[in-house]
Computed example of a mutant assay.
Amino acid sequence: MKKISLVIGGKRYTITLEEPFAEAVEQELTELFDPAKDNETKTLLQAFLTKQIECLELEEKLNELLKKFPD
């Protein structure tokens, strides 16, 4: 288990995650914003939407690949 902290709107939030998922989440967060500094709620929302778009794009690619295989 690993604790990850981030500051949003002047309040520190700490979450506990299982390894190796925690490492991946921590890396993703630091790529999108600085978890150690005070971030606005807008920053977190933008990061969330960025990841959602990436997930949708990956889902589309996966569906296209699956169409190439017979049922």
Rank of each mutant, 00 (worst) to 15 (best):
Arg12Leu: 08
Arg12Asp: 15
Arg12Glu: 14
Arg12Thr: 15
Arg12Trp: 08
Arg12Met: 14
Arg12Asn: 15
Arg12Phe: 08
Tyr13Asp: 08
Tyr13Arg: 09
Tyr13Ser: 09
Tyr13Gln: 08
Tyr13Val: 09
Tyr13Phe: 06
Tyr13Met: 06
Thr14Asp: 10
Thr14Tyr: 06
Thr14Lys: 05
Thr14Arg: 02
Thr14Val: 15
Ile15Trp: 01
Ile15Tyr: 07
Ile15His: 01
Thr16Val: 11
Thr16Leu: 01
Thr16Pro: 00
Thr16Asp: 03
Thr16Asn: 01
Thr16Gln: 07
Leu17Met: 09
Leu17Asn: 02
Leu17Ser: 06
Leu17Ala: 13
Leu17Ile: 11
Glu18Gln: 11
Glu18Phe: 02
Glu18Ile: 09
Glu18Pro: 06
Glu18Ser: 07
Glu19Met: 12
Glu19Leu: 15
Glu19Gly: 10
Glu19Ala: 14
Glu19Tyr: 07
Pro20Gln: 00
Pro20Glu: 05
Pro20Arg: 00
Pro20Asp: 03
Phe21Gln: 13
Phe21Glu: 12
Phe21Met: 11
Phe21Lys: 07
Phe21Thr: 10
Phe21Leu: 02
Phe21Asn: 05
Ala22His: 14
Ala22Met: 14
Ala22Val: 13
Ala22Pro: 14
Glu23Leu: 09
Glu23Ile: 13
Glu23Asn: 13
Glu23Ala: 14
Glu23Gly: 08
Ala24Ser: 15
Ala24His: 14
Ala24Met: 14
Ala24Trp: 02
Ala24Phe: 12
Val25Pro: 02
Val25Glu: 03
Val25Ala: 13
Val25Lys: 03
Val25Thr: 04
Val25His: 03
Val25Asn: 06
Glu26Pro: 11
Glu26Ile: 07
Glu26His: 10
Glu26Gln: 15
Glu26Val: 07
Glu26Cys: 10
Gln27Leu: 12
Glu28Asn: 10
Glu28Thr: 14
Glu28Asp: 13
Glu28Arg: 13
Glu28His: 04
Leu29Phe: 12
Leu29Glu: 02
Leu29Arg: 10
Leu29Ala: 11
Leu29Gly: 06
Leu29Gln: 10
Leu29Asn: 06
Thr30Ile: 10
Thr30Trp: 05
Thr30Cys: 05
Thr30Val: 12
Glu31His: 11
Glu31Thr: 07
Glu31Met: 08
Glu31Ser: 13
Leu32Pro: 01
Leu32Gly: 00
Leu32Arg: 00
Leu32Asn: 05
Leu32Trp: 07
Leu32Glu: 03
Phe33Gly: 03
Phe33His: 07
Phe33Thr: 05
Phe33Ser: 06
Phe33Arg: 04
Phe33Met: 04
Asp34Ala: 07
Asp34Leu: 01
Asp34Pro: 09
Pro35Trp: 03
Pro35Glu: 04
Pro35Lys: 02
Pro35Ser: 00
Pro35Asn: 07
Pro35Ile: 03
Ala36Pro: 00
Ala36Ile: 08
Ala36His: 12
Ala36Gly: 09
Lys37Cys: 08
Lys37Ser: 15
Asp38Thr: 07
Asp38His: 02
Asp38Gly: 06
Asp38Ala: 05
Asn39Met: 06
Asn39Lys: 05
Asn39Ile: 11
Asn39Val: 05
Asn39Arg: 01
Asn39Glu: 03
Asn39Ser: 07
Glu40Pro: 12
Glu40Leu: 15
Glu40Arg: 15
Glu40Ile: 08
Thr41Lys: 03
Thr41Pro: 10
Lys42His: 00
Lys42Gln: 01
Lys42Ala: 04
Lys42Cys: 00
Lys42Pro: 00
Lys42Tyr: 00
